[in-house]
Design a protein around this nucleic acid. Structure first.
Length: 705
DNA sequence: CAGTACGAAGTTTTT
DNA sequence: CTTCGTACTG
């Protein structure tokens, strides 16, 4: 059968694409089109009629990766086809499995999913109760998370010798944590996977049902699966062994949580018959970029037992050599990046969304943002405090969750004393304990006690307010507004020192909720809330290395190539594993680049209060000088230039950005940019006839339409 | 309980 | 410089 979307693929890609069944492993470096192979094979299996759209499941580990795959299908076969195919994250699959059958492992169908804040909150309250230093909550949360990723239940952990000193305390916290989750009918993200595996283990009938349905299973980014995810995937694929996984062992970022077994190797042992495909070409990066990547990755000890991948053959034109810029300070570095992007943008070859700037630490973001604002460059920074993470927004959502499910004790605790209702930590603690004794929820207990005591009149009002919504058929927006007004939350917010901003945020949230049903809205929020930059207009992407995984950009800037930053000082204890991890971060970053790669670092950098001088990153030493140009330092003229640029105050400009203009020979176009003053003024226009042109305003003879 | 004062610490990330 | 947690006071 011939499909037009198969054209233009190499022989080895086609072989993997056409793989009929049985276990298979695609292994190769970045840019070889692994994800594409999985997506198109999925499409092929369905289109050729070998399987129905329900019988093929392709899993990714992040939502962004899943939607990337979907858009590949969309390009090849249209939106309706991509909607039909089952391409999802592992957790989405788990949620789907658990919604139907979680009763048999002791949850009711409407279980809620705790996010990080909920988790931390719960753990901290447990620590407080156990009189353990509360500041340890982060570490404890991490340990619990990794235990779950390893499928170790609290009982297992206790049996397995977790009964000394700190480990014993950890075991008790873990035990209680799971108990609280169960009582609140809640799961955290790790539970989704662990409980799915448990469910499939304990219920052969359920397993059988899913196995019959999942005739073909594919997994992308397989090098990063956790033990629990590995179990899940292999359970699902079952005896028929129609499982195909794609892995890039160079990109293995080291599970932040789980034990670091190598699941690519394990896969090869578990499926001895697996066909191995090794796509050998890099379609993404130019040879010039690829050479630098190989230089950095080449020397140096690979993780034990894992062979470093053979460099891929590049198929593109040579391209331009990467450039390393050694700045004096982080401000100069940021200015250089912003300036470079602006120049390239003005040249007309790239739009702002073709650029990506990568950084290692949140601290680095601020100078970059400032430089962008100075240059008037639009940017998008996914990890800069997102809307749904803001405390006031989380509060509002907690109110809504309590209305929907009064037994959601974590949400109730969050809002019980915001605004203050005379319930401090100690009072809450006591009430919780009472609730536990009676085997009821916090809500029920409060309902009883608040009636008895006059001092708790405010709490009682809250409870009554919540109950007045027990049949919520109004729209989510209306409910939220009423809830937050009548609970006194809005009034309390307005007294806050930045109350105006916070009130505005709440209003934005209410608007976003709109006419939707409350439960639908909360579901929507829990899906959307953690980043996802879809729908951002033409803007430079500024993000951290791990966030960049799976993406590609024509032009990539890598900043902060300094000892202590990349590799990060936490890795500088010369633990080779950690240094390896940092190196892989750099690898993932560099391999995002298609056409151009820019590296930079600063000789000195502000750390919080003090300025610290920085050594260039050890990774730079791996790059032979003939592969990468080096700019030692900006000239004074260059550094001063940004301040000379007049700002783009739209009102003053005769031709504001975005205006439609007419040119005598080139016809109509849209103003893209405007630089300079008086006779020196230059204007960049995107003409529909000839594309982007940069003109001296003096001679351009433009008229506004 | 709530407000204040002082001291310590301050990677990254997914669902 | 921040933010956060603890400790102390009213």
């Amino acid at each position: 059968m011939k499909h037009s979307f198969l054209e233009g693929h190499s022989q080895s890609q086609l072989e993997a694409l056409m793989h009929q069944g049985g276990p298979a492993l695609i292994i190769s470096g970045a840019g070889s089109g692994k994800t594409r192979i999985l997506a198109l094979r999925h499409l092929m299996l369905v289109k050729s009629g070998d399987a129905t759209s329900d019988e093929v499941i392709t899993l990714a580990l992040t939502r962004r990766a899943a939607s990337c795959m979907k858009s590949l299908v969309e390009k090849a076969a249209g939106a309706s086809m991509s909607e039909m195919l089952r391409m999802d994250t592992v957790q989405a699959l788990c949620r789907w499995i658990l919604r139907d059958d979680c009763e048999s492992i002791g949850f009711s169908r409407d279980f809620i999913i705790y996010d990080d804040d909920d988790r931390f909150c719960l753990i901290r309250s447990i620590l407080k109760e156990f009189k353990i230093h509360e500041a340890l909550f982060r570490g404890i949360a991490g340990r619990i998370s990794s235990l779950k990723a390893d499928m170790v239940t609290p009982d297992h952990f206790l049996e397995g010798g977790g009964s000394f000193g700190f480990e014993e305390k950890l075991a008790r916290v873990y035990m209680r944590y799971q108990g609280e989750l169960r009582k609140n009918n809640a799961m955290d993200y790790d539970d989704l996977v662990m409980n799915s595996v448990r469910l499939l283990d304990e219920r052969p009938d359920v397993l059988d049902r899913y196995r019959r349905q999942a005739r073909h299973v594919m997994v992308d980014d397989f090098q990063t699966v956790t033990p629990a995810q590995y179990r899940l995937v292999t359970l699902l694929s079952g005896d028929n062994g129609n499982i195909m996984v794609a892995a890039d062992t160079n990109q293995w970022l080291g599970g932040q949580s789980c034990s670091c077994a190598d699941y690519v190797e394990l896969f090869r042992k578990d499926y001895r018959a697996a066909r191995v495909f090794r796509p050998e070409s890099n379609y993404r990066s130019t040879p010039c970029i690829s050479d630098v990547v190989c230089a950095v990755m080449g020397n140096g000890t690979a993780k034990k037992g894992v062979k470093s991948l053979k460099p891929l053959k590049t198929v593109r034109q040579a391209g331009t050599r990467p450039v390393y810029f050694h700045a004096a300070t982080e401000t100069e570095e940021a200015a250089h990046v912003a300036h470079g992007i602006r120049e390239l943008y003005l040249s007309g070859k790239y739009g702002y969304s073709d650029f990506c700037v990568l950084y290692r630490l949140g601290m680095q973001l601020r100078p970059i943002e400032e430089a962008f604002r100075r240059e008037g460059i639009p940017y998008y920074a996914p990890s800069a405090f997102m809307f749904y993470q803001k405390p006031e927004v989380k509060d509002a959502l907690a109110y809504a969750r309590v209305v929907l499910n009064p037994n959601d004790s974590v949400s109730l605790r969050r809002i019980i004393n915001s605004p203050p209702r005379g319930m401090g930590e100690t009072a809450i603690g006591k009430t919780c304990e009472a609730a536990r004794r009676d085997g009821t929820s916090l809500f029920e207990t409060l309902k009883r006690t608040s009636r008895a005591r006059k001092s708790q009149i405010k709490v009682r009002n809250l409870i009554e307010l919540v109950q007045s919504f027990s049949k919520p058929d109004a729209s989510a927006g209306d409910i939220l507004r009423k809830l937050l007004d009548e609970s006194g939350y809005m009034e309390w917010l307005s007294q806050d020192k930045s109350g105006a901003v916070k009130t505005a945020n709440i209003n934005a949230l209410i608007e976003a909720a709109g006419d939707r049903k409350l439960d639908e809205f909360l579901d929507h929020v829990s899906v959307i809330s953690h980043s996802d930059g879809a729908g951002v207009a033409d803007a430079v992407t500024v993000m951290t290395f791990p966030e960049a995984g799976g993406l590609e950009f024509p032009v990539v800037y890598i900043t902060g190539l300094e000892e202590g930053l990349l590799p990060n000082s936490h890795a500088c204890k010369d633990d080779p594993e950690l240094i390896e991890r940092e190196k892989r971060l750099l690898y993932t970053g560099m391999t995002r680049a298609c056409d151009m790669l820019f590296l930079s670092g600063a000789a000195s950098r502000r750390f919080y209060a003090r300025v610290q001088s920085q050594e260039p990153s050890r990774f730079l030493k791996e790059i032979p000088s003939d592969l990468c140009s080096v700019i030692e330092r900006a000239t004074r003229r260059e550094a001063a230039e940004p301040s000379v640029l007049p700002r783009l105050h739209g009102a003053i400009l005769p031709f504001p950005v975005g205006a439609r203009v007419r040119h005598i020979t080139w016809g109509t176009g849209v103003v893209r940019d405007f630089v300079g003053d008086g006779d020196a003024a230059k204007i960049t226009v995107n003409f529909s006839s000839v594309g982007v042109k940069r003109l001296a305003l003096k001679f351009a003879n433009l008229e506004v339409i």
